[in-house]
């Protein structure tokens, strides 16, 4: 039988549902102490969490923070009620862990330096061919405030009100930081 477009869509939906079911099973098993189920959850989500940590804090801290997030997730699994998808829950937990570390890291990097001069330093045009890597590198070179707002808003899809709550700033500051970040990064487009 030839598969029609709706057939493919149905199969994909079924596959998505099966994946969600399997993840729900793994969450239940991991919550009951099953390390292998937790390892599968780790492998499914590590790329997203590590990328988030790297973009928010830089390459040097990403591994350490990713480990922290999963260790924390293991100890908090019993509080996961399944009201949201596990990935959403884990992502929110990761943001909290990363931002909690912000104070320490901010001292090292000089946090919330959003002066135009600092942003201008980010804005030199890349010379290498790999634009995506350059774009990532440019994000990493943004001042902490602008970088965190940019990552949370433009990459992760948080709203300014949520970002303001998370970062302890007002929404207007979040909007301003986002605009500065975008202005700096636009020069890394080809």
């Amino acid at each position: 039988m030839e598969l029609t477009t709706p057939g493919v869509a149905t199969l994909r939906r079924d596959l998505d549902q099966a994946t969600r079911d399997a993840e729900t099973a793994d969450v239940a098993l991991a919550a009951s102490g099953d390390g292998r189920a937790f390892e599968r959850l780790y492998r499914s989500h590590v790329a997203r969490i590590h990328s988030l940590a790297q973009r928010m804090t830089g390459e040097d801290h990403a591994d350490d923070l990713t480990q922290d997030v999963f260790v924390r997730a293991w100890s908090k699994l019993s509080t996961f009620r399944g009201e949201a998808a596990f990935g959403t829950w884990l992502h929110r937990l990761a943001v909290n862990v990363i931002l909690a570390r912000r104070t320490t890291l901010g001292t090292e990097r000089g946090r919330y330096d959003d002066s135009e001069n600092v942003l201008d330093g980010v804005a030199s045009r890349p010379h290498t061919a790999e634009l995506s890597l350059d774009f990532e590198a440019a994000i990493e070179r943004l001042p902490d405030g602008a970088r965190q707002v940019f990552v949370l808003h433009d990459i992760e899809g948080y709203r300014h009100e949520e970002i303001a709550d998370l970062l302890g700033i007002v929404p207007g500051t979040s909007k301003s930081q986002l605009h500065h970040a975008r202005m700096a990064l636009r020069r890394h487009l080809e």
Partner: peptide, 19 residues
């Protein structure tokens, strides 16, 4: 932007932490 996994496998260290 694509998400990329860490260059080293972090699971062994996590597994040790969580026992």
């Amino acid at each position: 932007l694509d998400d990329t996994p860490p260059t080293t496998d972090l699971w062994p260290a996590i597994a040790r932490h969580v026992g």
